[in-house]
Design a protein around this nucleic acid. Structure first.
Length: 502
RNA sequence: GGCCCGGUGGUCAAAGGGUUAAGACACCGCCCUUUCACGGCGGUAGUACGAGUUCGAAUCUCGUCCGGGUCACCA
């Protein structure tokens, strides 16, 4: 084993969404493979539950992993030497193994009916805990088989003793065999259970490191027993702490819908960047040796080590995720920033809004302003329409009290005075002087000339343009973005309203 | 409830017998400032509890308490 190439796998079942706990497991498995020499990362689809088929779910898995940058060396859509990589396509492989176990007296046919839910009667009669099919005679089995009674195949657990296994993260774990149920290997529909197919496929695909969430810790002895029965080499187990969520009552449990978004897709639709999601979840249960927090996937491969994996469960924290998204957005080049936001901008600006100059590479003046006002405050992409909404619609009415502001020494009368002068000043600006710099200088010089605080002049202008207390950017930025006509229109309108009030 | 695992500030976490117990997010304050932010500086807050081992314990042992996971013909 030591000289072998590391082979890890991610084995999701196609549920129609990618739970971030699963995604993190995929990430860790990927990192373990990729941070080793020539390591291979494999994708295998575990779709042995016929009743839970979801249309398009497999494609979603491909798509999500691609977006996250978690590329696999072998998988359904990329091929490999150990295929097929979809369990429903390898059905014929499992049954012979089950028969082998029956021959070795490590498994048995079970003819009990499926346990019905909450029916006291069936509980008693058919509960598998009495293991009534465990010791049927050959004659009985033969008869039952020929009478076509549906059956499943169960693993025959030792009734005494204990099973011990080693986990890289959790250490040595020992469970009494009497705790282990005679779990089903082959269902009555002929499909293998996850518990069985998983072990078979991991062996056939030569998986060296099994990476999964710690919810599998208690069932690992059962898998270990299977490996022993087959006399196969047991893989290295790496169980990771769970991701938990905290709901409003403060109750903590496995991250689920009631905590808000739980899937990669949910998070993305909330405006979080794929690379942010990856970066954040990497740090939920794993820590680099140093104080760095921002990691690209490539950097993660470089610094990842199994030893820094954490046992204890961690709670998913939106505050921290927000910070990551903010940082990533802020650190983008201006051009990338605009490109990333463009689908949101389209909800605010008209079709012909120009984001780039004619060379299609250099940002337009308006884009430069958007970068300037959005970068320092944008947390998620979906905030954009709301933040920029005031640009789209001219104010229909004003809350007069907004013009009063102590800190900038602004009140109704000063606002009337300032707007009157400012309108005059802006009107005299030539259109070829229409740049943020010129407009800003114009206003600041005006304030200087009047011997007043910048705020006394800027405050009423900004309010007249937006009619809201808080805006991204100040008066000069908003004027530049709105253009001369629209700005003057809004300022004049506000001036009229104010005069009528006095 | 049985079994398994975990427990460092509100959250993520470093420290694996010796440090004033790092750092980040969040929160609070101050500065900057044309609003809100950004940025800069500073602050509040933690080893669940009790024994034991040791010159010395967040770190090792035991007990208690708390939290989570698991007990399907789901994966």
């Amino acid at each position: 084993m030591k000289n072998d190439v590391v082979r890890t796998r991610f084995a999701p079942s196609p549920t129609g969404f990618m739970h971030i706990g699963n995604l993190r497991t995929a990430l860790y498995a990927f990192l373990i493979a990729k941070s080793s020499k020539n390591g291979k990362f494999i994708l295998r689809i575990e779709d042995t539950d016929q009743n839970r088929k979801v249309e398009g779910a497999v494609d979603l898995i491909f798509k999500t992993l691609k977006k996250a940058g978690i590329n696999y060396d072998e998988g359904p859509d990329v091929g490999g030497n150990f295929g097929p990589y979809i369990q429903s396509m390898r059905l014929e492989k499992y049954f012979p193994y089950a028969l082998e176990l029956i021959k070795k007296n490590k498994a048995y046919y079970c003819f009990c009916e499926q346990k019905k839910e909450s029916s006291a009667e069936t509980e008693v009669v058919f509960s598998n805990y009495n293991r009534r099919c465990r010791n049927l005679s050959k004659e009985q089995i033969k008869n039952l088989l020929s009478s076509k009674i549906p059956y499943c195949i169960r693993q025959k657990m030792p009734l005494s003793g204990s099973t011990t296994f080693d986990d890289v993260v959790f250490g040595t774990i020992c469970v009494d065999n009497k705790e282990l149920e005679d779990q089903i290997l082959i269902k009555s529909d002929g499909y293998p259970t996850y518990n069985f197919a998983n072990v078979i496929d991991d062996h056939e695909m030569k998986i060296t490191h099994v990476v999964r969430g710690s919810e599998y810790l208690t069932s690992t002895p059962k898998y270990n027993l299977l490996y022993e029965f087959f006399e196969w080499e047991i893989p290295i187990y790496i169980h990771t702490g769970l991701i938990l969520g905290k709901n409003k009552d403060g109750i903590i449990s496995k991250l689920s819908k009631r905590h808000g978004a739980t899937s990669f897709e949910d998070l993305e639709s909330l405006g979080y960047l794929p690379e942010v999601i990856v970066n954040y979840i990497a740090l939920l249960g794993w820590c680099p040796g140093n104080n760095c927090e921002i990691f690209s996937l490539k950097q993660l491969i470089d610094v990842f080590s199994i030893g820094n994996l954490n046992r204890s469960p961690s709670i998913f924290d939106y505050d921290k995720l927000n910070w990551f998204n903010f940082e990533y957005l802020k650190n983008k080049s201006d051009e990338d920033f605009i490109k990333t936001c463009i689908s949101q901008f389209k909800k605010v600006f008209p079709e012909n809004f120009e984001y780039f100059k004619k060379d299609k590479k250099t940002l337009s003046q308006n884009s430069e302003i958007l970068v300037k006002i959005l970068k320092p405050r944008l947390i998620t992409l979906v905030q954009i329409p709301k933040i920029l909404n005031f640009l789209k619609f001219a104010p229909e009415e004003y809350d007069i009290s907004l013009f009063e502001n102590k800190k900038s020494k602004s009140n109704i009368n000063s606002s009337i005075e300032m707007l009157t002068i400012a309108i005059d000043e802006i009107e005299n600006l030539q259109m070829n002087d229409w740049s943020l710099e010129n407009i800003k200088n114009c206003l600041i010089n005006l304030a200087k000339k009047l011997e007043i605080k910048n705020g006394t002049l800027m405050w009423p202008i900004r309010i007249s343009l937006s009619a809201v207390e808080v805006t991204p950017g100040g008066a000069p930025e908003i004027i530049t973005l709105l253009g001369k006509d629209e700005s003057l229109k809004r300022m004049k309108n506000a001036l009229d309203v104010l005069k009528n009030k006095v």
